[in-house]
Design a protein around this nucleic acid. Structure first.
Length: 609
RNA sequence: CGGAGAGUAGCUCAGUUUGGUAGAGCGCACGGCUGGGGGCCGUGAGGUCGCAGGUUCAAGUCCUGUCUCUCCGACCA
């Protein structure tokens, strides 16, 4: 067979038949003139986010449909570099790479109840036999199913399995290019441990690997506490890149002693307000067909901050009442935590009417505690001196309501806690909270036994006792790393890549391709760099310089070598970093070595110990 | 899913108000002048005006339906 391969390589091809004697088939590889790098001058109409615009303009990708993208050479090379870094570090942390199908049986998702939890965000399809399937939005079920079958003994633990593969989510609203797309690439790892101490170690190993990965990718990121689901405590951290196009909000104190995402950020109770003099007894007022906070305020000449909002939630078979101030927003995650991890959903109108004896819009706290299984009150409501609230009677509200006097703030089923989203002006441990937008690029999460119990991933411990595995899951959005890097590294001319994930490390811009000696000099440096395994792209297009420089800035390769007849006349070429404005002239014969040194230096800056 | 907007050349967009021969810039092909920051001149190719139906002598333009895309919101390990 060898002769065949050999001959195939040496067969004449269209490229080799080029009239230009400088062109040699083996060296065609990364010549710009042969590559599909469709840069565009105009700002694409479809794009809003900076990274999205630049990814289209620099020819990294093209949209196929809402939330799906084709990656072209530059984008794909970048993704591959990110994947290589992720793989290296996750392997290093002791996890092993496997691959599970994206096409997964619906059955598994029904067993864990997540078929319902995910709802319409999950792509579903029926096969010809009428069997339900899903396109995996993630893979806890399949990994746990695997573990259930293969892991039987504590001797096999701990173990951490991961994959890097496409994920699918039928987002209501794909947005910001690849930042929120319907198909994306995710690294997802799942750890299985025998005891909490071991889980903590597995968790920590992933946490540390994440720090290494994002540092190597040249990202500035923050780690915040994230919602921790049913494990409670600090069971989850989120890695976020602060930038304008982010969809997540991170909340932190000025001195950085505390940082959390918006779902989790804890706020201090507000100081108790003192009433001005005695408050008259609570008094019902007729408010015909006035059911919203705004309408009531208008009608009763009051303000949202003086209203008490009573929300009726359904939790499994129970009904709970949740109270927040009229101008505050209830945080469903905090409610879930308060309820011990049980997911709460706004009750349907029937339930609300049953509990309040009134139409929706007139629920209130007075007397409601006896009719629900729990009454959960936000600190800010407890701190109110007096307020206006629904009367549990259609078309009526109550004013002069004093928390503690007219409804209980303690006892039996009453809980006063932190129940709302943090907002500007709030504090944590007495320190002012600040807010920033960010892109979530990774999350580590202690799952506990939720999946292992439901899917039977059990093992026998040293005593021969059967136990469910303690699990953790760890995700990284590969495409989001790409987008984040662009969000952070760009200027008005285009992308500025970190060298570690740039599609190429070096770009040689040959300004006068039609001048034989200039082209030859550029080609010479190109060959030398190729020989030294530098990732180099040669812009050998017979175009005028201006266009090539614009493209060079747009695609943002970190190091540019400019070969032109002006400087070449003095035996020199120019080297410029995309991130700097200065250029340096070096003798042609020293160019390759100089570039190699610069690339090494750039890489060095992104190294982790 | 609620609200708003958009679909006309490969791209960015005029033209729709007031129905009457399908437009510009960029890009593309060819030729020429150029040649270190998207240069200039000439010639040319390229369109079922998203799709379907209707009104009309005549529809890119008016009416109805439908699909797609974008933005705001809700949703989201």
């Amino acid at each position: 067979m060898q002769w065949l391969v050999f001959d195939a390589i040496n067969l004449p091809c269209d490229y080799c038949q080029n009239d230009d004697p400088r062109l040699d088939h083996k060296e065609q590889y990364m010549r710009y003139s042969r590559l599909l790098v469709p840069t565009v001058k105009e700002i694409p109409a479809e794009a809003e986010a900076t990274s999205h615009k630049l990814m289209i303009r620099a020819g990294l990708c093209r949209r196929v449909s809402s939330g799906t993208y084709t990656y072209l050479l530059l984008g794909q090379r970048s993704l591959l570099k990110i994947i290589a870094i992720v793989r290296e570090e996750i392997d290093r942390a002791g996890a092993q790479e496997i691959l599970v199908p994206s096409l997964q049986p619906l059955e598994l998702w029904e067993k864990t109840g997540r078929s319902t939890d995910y709802g319409e965000t999950m792509f579903r399809l029926e096969d010809r036999h009428g069997k339900g399937n899903v396109l995996g939005p993630t893979a806890e079920e399949v990994f746990t199913y695997l573990a259930a079958g293969e892991i039987n003994s504590y001797r096999q633990l701990p173990i951490n399995l991961y994959q890097i593969s496409p994920k699918f989510r039928d987002e209501f609203r794909p947005r910001f290019g690849v930042i929120r797309s319907r198909e994306f690439i995710m690294k997802d790892a799942y750890s299985f441990d025998a005891d909490p101490e071991s889980l903590e170690k597995s968790y920590r190993a992933m946490y540390d690997a994440y720090c290494r990965i994002f540092t190597r990718c040249g990202l500035e990121y923050v780690i915040v506490e994230a919602e921790s689901g049913e494990m409670g405590g600090s069971g989850s951290h989120q890695f976020t890149v602060p930038c304008e196009s982010g969809e997540d909000t991170i909340v932190y104190t000025e001195d950085s002693s505390y940082a959390a995402n918006l779902e989790r950020a804890a706020v201090d109770p507000l100081p108790k307000q003192q009433p001005r003099g005695d408050v008259p007894p609570a008094e019902e007022v007729e408010t015909p067909n006035v059911g919203t906070i705004e309408a009531v305020c208008e009608f009763l000449k009051t303000e949202p901050k003086d209203m008490i909002k009573t929300l009726i939630y359904a939790v499994a078979d129970e009904v709970v009442a949740a109270l927040v101030r009229g101008d505050h927003e209830l945080n469903a995650e905090k409610l879930t935590q308060t309820l011990g991890g049980a997911r709460a959903e706004l009750a349907d109108p029937m339930t609300i009417e049953g509990v309040t004896n009134a139409r929706v819009g007139f629920a209130g706290p007075i007397g409601i505690a006896d009719r629900v299984s729990k009454m959960i009150i936000d600190h800010a409501v407890a701190a109110m001196a007096v307020g206006v609230t629904g009367a549990n009677k259609s078309d009526y509200h109550v004013r002069n309501v004093v928390p503690g006097r007219d409804f209980p703030l303690a006892g039996g089923n009453v809980i006063v806690t932190d129940l709302r989203y943090a907002e500007a002006g709030d504090t944590h441990d007495g320190k002012k909270l600040l807010f920033k937008k960010g892109i979530e690029i990774g999350q580590v999460f202690k799952l506990g036994t939720k999946y292992s119990v439901k899917l039977g991933a059990k093992f026998l411990d040293e005593q021969g006792v059967e136990k469910p595995c303690l699990m953790g899951c760890y995700g990284i959005g590969i495409n989001r790393i790409l987008a984040s890097a662009i969000e952070l590294g760009n200027d008005q001319n285009g992308i500025i890549w970190p060298v570690s994930i740039a599609p190429f490390e070096v770009l040689i811009t040959c300004v006068n391709q039609n001048e034989q000696d200039v082209a030859k000099a550029a080609d010479g440096i190109y060959q030398q760099l190729m020989d030294k395994a530098i990732d180099v792209l040669l812009d050998d297009r017979p175009l005028r310089g201006g266009i090539k420089f614009k493209d060079a800035d747009l695609i943002g390769i970190p190091v540019r070598v400019t070969v032109g007849k002006k400087s070449l006349a003095e035996g020199k070429v120019e080297i410029k970093l995309r991130s700097e404005s200065e250029r340096q002239q070096v003798p042609v014969e020293e160019a390759a070595d100089e570039v190699i040194a610069i690339v090494a230096d750039l890489k060095d800056k992104l190294k982790v110990q």
